[in-house]
């Protein structure tokens, strides 16, 4: 039976096939999905911020740096090979334009940048991104085949 788990903000889960991990209503937060296609194990994190405050060691799933590191450790415990891990990243929207016209990086942009950097530093190949924009996303990661389905209110759905 395929288990389906929905991640709340700041949550991180790892799983093996058959399972689906999802996030409903992703805005400026970022979803990162890492997956070992040979072992069919992986994990997803619902990330709020680039990095933790100084001296803080809790809520690893909230921060790009700690979430990526924790997911790598946990997927390896489930049997993933580090060199085989692939990543897909989505989210980081700018939902409200309070100061439209100013080209300042938004919190969504910073989250995306932090996640991509953390993945590169961990040596994980990023094979798909669907980031930015001004719309929310619902994302479903399928551990059966490593697909990531992204749905929006306006534009239907796509699979990356």
């Amino acid at each position: 039976m395929t288990r389906h788990r929905s991640l709340s903000a700041g949550e991180l889960r790892v799983a093996e096939a058959p399972a689906r991990l999802s996030i409903h209503g992703l805005g400026s937060c970022v979803a990162v999905f890492i997956y070992d296609p040979a072992k069919r194990v992986g994990g997803m994190a619902h990330i709020l911020l680039p990095g933790p405050p100084r001296d803080s060691t809790d809520h690893v799933g909230r921060y790009a740096t700690t979430a990526v590191a924790a997911m790598v450790d946990e997927t390896i415990r489930l049997g993933a090979k580090p060199a085989a891990l692939l990543a897909k990243v989505t989210g980081g929207s700018r939902m409200f334009a309070y100061d439209a016209g100013k080209e300042r990086p938004t919190v969504g942009d910073k989250n995306v940048e932090a996640v991509l950097r953390a993945l590169r530093e961990a040596g994980i190949e990023i094979i798909a991104t669907d980031v930015g924009g001004d719309h929310g996303r619902t994302v479903v990661a399928d551990l059966q085949d490593g697909s990531l389905t992204i749905m929006t209110v306006r534009g239907g759905s796509k699979v990356v």
């Binding site: 209503g25 805005g27 400026s28 709020l48 939902m95 719309h135 929310g136 996303r137």
Partner: peptide, 8 residues
């Protein structure tokens, strides 16, 4: 949009 997205 979705409530989740507008409360992030």
């Amino acid at each position: 949009d979705m409530l989740g997205a507008v409360t992030d």
